[in-house]
Every structure is written in C-alpha cells, then in structure tokens.
Amino acid sequence: MDFSAILPALPGLWDGMLLTLQLMVMGVLGGVILGTALAMLRLSHNKWLANAAATYVNYFRSIPLLLVITWFYFAVPFILRWITGEDTPIGAFSSCLVAFIMFEAAYFCEIVRAGIQAIAKGQMGAAQALGMNYPQSMRLIILPQAFRKMTPLLLQQSIILFQDTSLVYTVGLMDFLNASRSRGDIIGQSHEFLIFAGLVYFTVSFAASLLVKHLQRRLAV
C-alpha cells in the first residue's frame, strides 16, 4: 500500500467533492421544496390531488434510485426533443439533478407530512380563529413549527443523499467517488484511492450524523 500518490491528486479529488456537494445541496433544496408541495397535496381535502401525490410518492419509493438516474439521463433529452423539436443537450449534471430532486421529493414529502401531522390540530384552529386563511395558517404557523421538528430527519435524509450521489458515475459524472476511482486506476493504485474515498465518506457522514444527534437533543428541549 502506497498512499503517497493521493496528495498530488487532492485538487482533482476536491473538484469531485465539489460536484458531489453541489448535487447534494441542490438535490436537497429542490427535494424539500417539491416534497413540501407534495405533502400539501397529500394532506389536501381534494381526493384527486391527494391520490395523485400518494401515487407519485409510492411510485418513486418503489423503484431504485439508479434506475431513476439512468432513466432521466436517457429520457429527459428525448422528451425535450419531442417538445421543442430540436436537440437540446441538457447534460448529465442537469439530468442527474432532476432525478435526485424527483426521487428525494418522495422521501421528503413523507417527512414533511409527518412533521405537519405532529403539530397539534389546535394550532390550526387557533390560526384560523384569528382570521387566517388556510395558506396563511400553513405558512405562518404550521410549517415553521413542522420544519423545526423535522430538521434532524431532513438532515439525516441529506446524509443518505450525500452517499447516493455516487451513483452518478453510471452516467459518467466525475463526482468524488468517480474521481478517486479513475485517478487510482490511471496509476494502478485503485485500492489506495478507494480506501481513501471510503475514509472521506465515512468521516463526513459520521461527523454530520453526530451533529444531527446534537441538534436533535437541542431541538427536543
């Protein structure tokens, strides 16, 4: 084992890490926004909307992420060509990001829904008794409390996404894992580079989950 080749490769690996983080942060943000919208639909009194959202969630929770990534990589350009009538290359990054957002939204939806349902029904009554309409009650009273309650779960899900971003190697994106692997392969030291990558993933994820636990204790008060 010779780890000396890792040091000069660090700038390249850092580029990979940046892509990983970019995918994760944008995926989480988009996923939370879409997931919250889905949660609203699932809780809506309109049966059609609620069922449509439930179908979406159940569908995406029943298929592998890898399939979604591959599917979007091939399908999105095809659909765009069908709509616009011309070739619109959107690139692997965009298609992966869309896949992550759509996929994670299904999980975030369930977290947000549980968070909303955990807020006592009386809070909605109090908001409405003061003359707030439903959107105001949600936005000003229920959601702020719900998000506070579910922050640890949202972060936990983000850590999982941090690891799952490594699946983008299938469509040729140079994320952290792919960057490590390819660099190791080139100089015939793939073992060392993969061990190093594993350490980095472990350290980041473990530290983050410790932070979440700490946060959980603080928010519980």
Partner: peptide
Amino acid sequence: RSRVGMVFQHFELFPHLSITENLTIA
C-alpha cells in the same frame, strides 16, 4: 372569524413566536 375572538382550553399560543409576535401576527 377575524371579528370573533376565541380562547381555547389549551391556550394554543404559537410556540415558535415571541409573546409580542403572538399578539401582532394576525
């Protein structure tokens, strides 16, 4: 409802807001 005041058994103040904000938000 904005013209009908209501007081609940379990108070239902908004826990994420300060007392002043509770009094002013609506």
